[in-house]
Simulated assay, not measured.
Amino acid sequence: MDKLEVMDRLQRLSIEQDKLTRKLIDGEQRFRALARSVWSVQEEERKRLARELHDGIGQTLTALKLRLATMEASPEKTEALEITEIALSEARQLARLLRPAVLDDLGLAHALEWLCQLIQDQAEIQVSLRISGLEERLPPDMETLLFRLAQEALTNAQKHSRASIIDIRLTCTDQRVTLCIADNGIGFDVDQACASERDGFGLRSMRDRVELFSGDFSIKSSRNSGTDIFVNLGR
């Protein structure tokens, strides 16, 4: 086999490699598009269920509450009103957790403010929110993604970190959107948590969702040193 033949074979192999690489890239892009579609459908279903809870069950319970209020006073009436009030509050809370209307109606900034206040009221954690460069609303899918990431990070911190302070920063430029969430909790071993089927699922889910948007996701944490979560998305 002479030199020209070797070069020719190498060139053919390079062309075939390029074709295979392109097929892999195309397949990955189609997979991401499909996964994003599935995720969007799930969010739409959340929105529908939240609306049904608020407009359906919520209004029915409200009507029941008003009807009870017109009845003569009795211990049974008082008990029924208390039960109805609890059920109504829980239905509204569940609807907001499924898909807060403020996210669709007013946008990401107001939704994050609501979420921070909710965590502060529930867990007595000091949550600070700083938003810069957000002059207009982001695309709906991106707003939903960033809200869900913040929601999961705050919920995890509330349940596991023993943090007393959580700091959220959302920074927007013409090219990038950056979300940083830091707490002063007990921290954890990131590698060990990611390897765990139980503890690592949430972290992998967050990372996977960011990768669907071709973004960057990273976590910095260690025992007794808090946790920092970083998300970078292109606009």
Rank of each mutant, 00 (worst) to 15 (best):
R22M: 11
T70L: 15
S164W: 13
Q151L: 11
I119N: 03
L179Q: 10
L146F: 09
I229H: 08
R67C: 13
E79G: 04
S221Q: 11
S221M: 11
T70Y: 05
V127P: 04
D228Q: 15
D2M: 00
D191E: 14
T155Q: 09
R46N: 09
Q59F: 00
N224C: 15
A163L: 05
E143T: 02
L88F: 09
S14H: 07
E136G: 12
V41M: 07
F217M: 01
E136R: 09
T144K: 07
V127N: 01
S14Q: 10
L64P: 03
E152G: 12
M7C: 11
S218K: 10
Q120V: 07
C116R: 10
N224P: 04
A63Q: 00
L203A: 04
E85R: 10
R96L: 10
S14A: 15
L146I: 03
T173I: 00
Q175W: 09
L138E: 02
Q122H: 13
P139M: 07
T62E: 07
E143H: 06
N184H: 01
H160L: 10
R46C: 06
L103W: 02
H54M: 15
A50L: 08
S196W: 05
E28P: 06
E135K: 15
V231H: 01
S196Y: 10
Q11A: 13
D55T: 02
S164H: 05
Q59G: 00
D121P: 01
G185Q: 01
A87I: 09
A73H: 06
R235E: 09
S74K: 09
L61K: 13
R162H: 11
R223T: 08
I86A: 07
I166N: 04
R67W: 04
L94S: 14
M1S: 05
M142V: 01
L134C: 04
A157L: 00
S14V: 11
D104R: 00
W39Q: 12
E113D: 00
D8E: 01
L53R: 04
L20N: 00
E135V: 07
I219F: 05
F147L: 02
D104M: 04
E52P: 01
R92V: 02
D191L: 13
Q117I: 05
T62Q: 08
N184C: 04
L64Q: 00
D8K: 15
E16V: 06
G200E: 09
A153T: 06
D199W: 15
Q175H: 11
Q117D: 05
I125Q: 12
H160K: 04
